[in-house]
Design a protein around this nucleic acid. Structure first.
Lengths: 266, 266
DNA sequence: TAGTGGTCTAGACCACGTG
DNA sequence: ACGTGGTCTAGACCACTAT
């Protein structure tokens, strides 16, 4: 009972708290998938299709339990995991909400640059360019596209305290970010990822970063107001959305005099 | 009921699953602490005092439930959190074990340097020096010691594929690491943290790192076989043991040509 | 076969936020 | 006063591991 990943919330699964006599053939479970995982999948699906949008409240645990025909505890465990993965946010007494990149909390999950005194400095973005082109072999591979598929390239500077501190080159799949132009980028206030989720329905869930120390090349050095050869932090990021589909490749160069990249090992 | 953080597992808390009529005065809860958190504290205490040592199995959930006079579900939730924090490891069918730095799994939780191809290269450590001295003001502050308290300084090189790749300077509180000498360091096979937990009963639980790109100073450059001024990753780590007490300050210089520091944002 | 952790349920009560 | 998530319990059954 309760296995079959192909048919979520199938109820050959009679709860049967009445002792013994557990219904029909237990039927060996080839690939066992817990009920709450199936529920988790269904909830994720509703998030993905936009049934519940970022910032909105989702149905209460009892409602979901009724909807999926499982106990509240099972829904709870599913939501627990989704909250741990930052897809949902629980607020006691109020309800459970779809996470968004607009919250204070989420800001420093992706840009972890702090000032030497440990303070989070606000920063402003300066757009350098935004144009459409064909993916290089390398970018295509990372974005899971075919070579020469259309992509959007964004280049921008981040200023901390008025000083150029971060240079970003961002590649996005053109098919997903149809209609993304320099104008719309310039208009939008707030984090890039907040715009992506609001305007293009694409939410960044997780990312991996490869970090190196490199010598600034002349063009980069110039933009960051440091001498050529100056040590910079090179941060190669790939971001993923639902289903672990890569939807962003980003290379950043960080000036780390007066600032540092904060990481917690736990 | 069930509040009072001062008196863990106090049972003014009659389960009373019988409907209604919940015992005496509910008594406003000034600082509410869930039962499972109290249990978690008790288990942590047993870990700290060494009642259960790294690698050993701890009592089963039912045993612990009986011992603490709570339900199995409550013990389960406490253990769940401790497992999530990497203090315990659950193994279905076998039991729950105290985590150790000897496991494969734990190795790359603290040294996240991978080769460009993504492979985890094995490395060998070369001890440069190990001596006792008095803490500088800066080190004392970070280790929560008084200035000029005794500390141990370890300097070592890590070789990847025979190439000097990491230079580490490690400061430890002398009082905790009494009897730590170059000889004992040289003898010990395996990760440093495995030795610390086995020989000195000090287990590193979590750490924070501040990462920068810096130009190699001559002395450092020389040891790492790179030219002076070469870009290096500077990693400043503070490690904590039970009770969030800092017990290690470490500065590392990483050569990141052919290797990168891997980080996952999630 | 016995023991361990893992899943699922159902119901009671608590703490928090809002009317 | 009501609804939400949060805690706690108790019991049944499943999956895995060892003997």
């Amino acid at each position: 009972m309760r296995a079959m990943s192909a048919n979520p919330v199938s109820h050959a699964n009679s709860p049967a708290p009445e002792s013994g006599a557990s219904a029909s053939a237990p039927a060996a479970s080839p690939t066992f998938s817990p009920l709450y995982q199936q529920i988790k999948g269904l909830i994720t699906q509703s998030l993905e299709t936009g049934e519940w949008k970022p910032g909105e409240i989702i149905p209460s645990e009892v409602e979901l339990a009724a909807r999926y025909k499982v106990s509240q505890g099972t829904v709870r465990k599913a939501i627990d995991e989704l909250a741990a993965e930052n897809l949902l946010v629980r607020r006691q007494g109020k309800g459970t909400f779809v996470a968004t990149h607009n919250e204070e909390r989420a800001q420093f999950r992706f840009l972890r640059l702090l000032a030497d005194d440990g303070a989070e400095h606000p920063h402003v973005s300066r757009l350098l360019e935004c144009r459409r082109l064909r993916a290089s072999a390398d970018i295509a591979r990372q974005l899971d596209l075919k070579p020469s598929d259309p992509v959007v390239l964004i280049r921008r500077l981040l200023q901390f305290d008025g000083e150029n501190t971060v240079l970003d080159e961002i590649w996005l799949p053109g098919a997903v970010f149809r209609g993304l132009t320099a104008e719309r980028l310039a208009e939008y206030k707030g984090p890039l990822y907040a715009m992506f989720e609001a305007e293009f329905g694409t939410r960044m869930i997780r990312a991996t970063e490869k970090i190196r120390a490199v010598a600034a090349e002349p063009a980069v050095a110039d933009l960051l107001n440091v001498p050529a050869g100056f040590p910079l932090l090179s941060v190669d990021r790939v971001s993923y959305t639902y289903g672990d589909r890569p939807v962003e490749v980003r290379r950043g160069w960080y000036v780390t005099t007066g600032y540092y990249y904060q990481n917690d090992l736990s």
